[in-house]
Design a protein around this nucleic acid. Structure first.
Lengths: 288, 288
DNA sequence: ATTTATTAATGCATATTTTGCATTAATGGA
DNA sequence: TCCATTAATGCAAAATATGCATTAATAAAT
């Protein structure tokens, strides 16, 4: 059964006149007549009561006119929706990102995405460092923004940003600028640092930093959560080293002292993910 | 867009394998391949991600599979419903009938109809004598069961039953059998009769009856409603003449004395009503 | 009653679409 | 490296849809 036929039928059911209808749907009266006949045949029922003079819907025809109009609209709506899925204008993206950029890079990025693709649904999640690539591979997330380089097969990644690391101290602390730092003064400090994780390039950078000053820090607490670390520093329990993206969080009572060490942000996705939504988002993220 | 194409798509979306699917839907792999391609073309989107080895649904394809399955079921259901309308197995019939047969002929007739056409919806109404044919012509009712012969153009009618008239008296009344009646004894009675209506063949029969006994009855009340008449007779307010169909109503305290006069029941319908439901009902009513 | 205008159906030739057969090209696994 | 599997494609045949011209029926006008 051809949808076109149903459209012919609906047009005729509206006009109840073969010639006028034929013109309206841009075929000849002859073709229309035969289309209606073959539709009736196919359905095994009569749609119109007609003599050589008048055309009138049968009860079944009247019913079908009503119902098919609704169905065809439904089908059209479904088609349009599918088209948006195809163009990557609609769909769902689940993105994992580190807490550090939730007040800087993420809002910028999301603003850009929602403006370009307003129909898109985005889910933001935070995933523990060790789960990131696993979740990506198992379709639990579609994009992972990490501070770690990966060399997994099947995962592609690209650098999107570089942060400076910064020493975070309470406002009343004696460290004011970078020049106040020295091996001796640093040795006396208590540090609050991210969990030291084998293979995490982020924690390797922090290790490199201490190597630069050539001493082992007195770490009194480890946490993977930046907001926890910041709260502890503000209470004077110690000082911390964080990406300076955290400066964008509203954190009164703290001073960020930029350090000459950088940490990179990478965006990771499945190499075989051909979802057009992904392509659109990557294009947005990398353009300009 | 051909529905058949959508069915091919759904089969392939299920199997994800051209050869197997082609066999299942009884066409060649070549034809299937091209049907899918032309469907994709027509929709302007990709349904499957495929290389020479694997077939996989795109997000849009997955969405369409889900939605189209539902729609096609819906369309099939609509088709079946329309077919029942066509066969006259489904639909609505509005039938007007006189009160007199609501405990005899109507229950029998309705039992027969609902057994043969269980999906049918029947509306029973009672319509004043003078409105019957008008309502029929104006599509307010589809069938009118009357005691009157009509000769309206555009209305067809057929006799379905003949009733005897009966004299209705209270149990304690002196009239017991037909032989008790005479012009003299009848003259003394008070009568409750149907509204005397010009052109109503029913009231003409009653007139004929009084002519037979050659006297004018003392009519103290007219009513078109049999149940009203019966209630009044039971209270001893007078005696009445009614079709003996009323014997089937549960009416204790009354005696029906059959009279040698008959009244016919006619069934009337629009000559140009081609509703298959009507044809079915007429067939049921007249068969046997 | 007869004529005329209107209108749906139909015969036939043409154009378009679909199908099947055979073959090709790509790819994963042995 | 070779083989088996599998989706795509060229081509001819079959099926289907379309347009033109004509026919048959009928309601309205005369």
């Amino acid at each position: 059964m051809d949808i076109q036929r149903i459209k012919y039928f609906l047009a005729l059911a509206e006009q109840l006149h073969y010639w006028k209808t034929a013109e309206k749907v841009s075929i000849t009266q002859s073709a229309l007549s035969r289309q209606i006949q073959s539709l009736e045949n196919e359905l095994g029922l009569q749609l119109f009561e007609r003599n050589k003079r008048n055309v009138k819907l049968t009860p079944a025809g009247k019913f079908l006119k009503e119902k098919w109009e609704i169905e065809l609209n439904e089908l059209e709506y479904i088609h349009q929706f599918a088209k948006q899925l195809h163009l990557g204008e609609r769909g769902t993206m689940t993105i994992a990102h580190p807490d550090s950029i939730s007040a800087s890079l993420m809002p910028d990025m999301l603003a850009k995405i929602t403006q370009a693709l307003p129909q898109l649904q985005i889910k933001l999640v935070q995933v523990l460092y060790e789960n990131q690539l696993d979740f990506l591979k198992n379709y639990k997330i579609d994009l992972a923004i990490t501070r770690d380089i990966n060399n997994e097969p099947g995962i592609r990644a690209k650098k999107i940003y570089s942060d400076h690391l910064a020493l975070v101290v309470p406002l009343e602390h004696s460290f004011k600028v970078f020049e106040d730092l020295s091996a001796e003064s640093l040795k006396k400090q208590k540090f609050i640092l991210p969990t030291k994780d084998e293979g995490s390039s982020y924690s390797e950078i922090i290790q490199a930093l201490f190597k630069f000053y050539d001493f082992a820090p007195d770490v009194f607490l480890h946490s993977e959560f930046g907001s926890t670390i910041i709260a502890l520093v503000r209470k004077g329990l110690g000082i911390a080293i964080l990406p300076d993206s955290y400066m964008h969080h509203q954190s009164p009572g703290l001073r960020f002292i930029p350090l000459p060490f950088k940490t990179d942000l990478w965006i990771n996705w499945r190499a075989d993910d051909h979802n057009p939504v992904l392509a659109n988002i990557l294009k947005l993220v990398f353009e300009e």
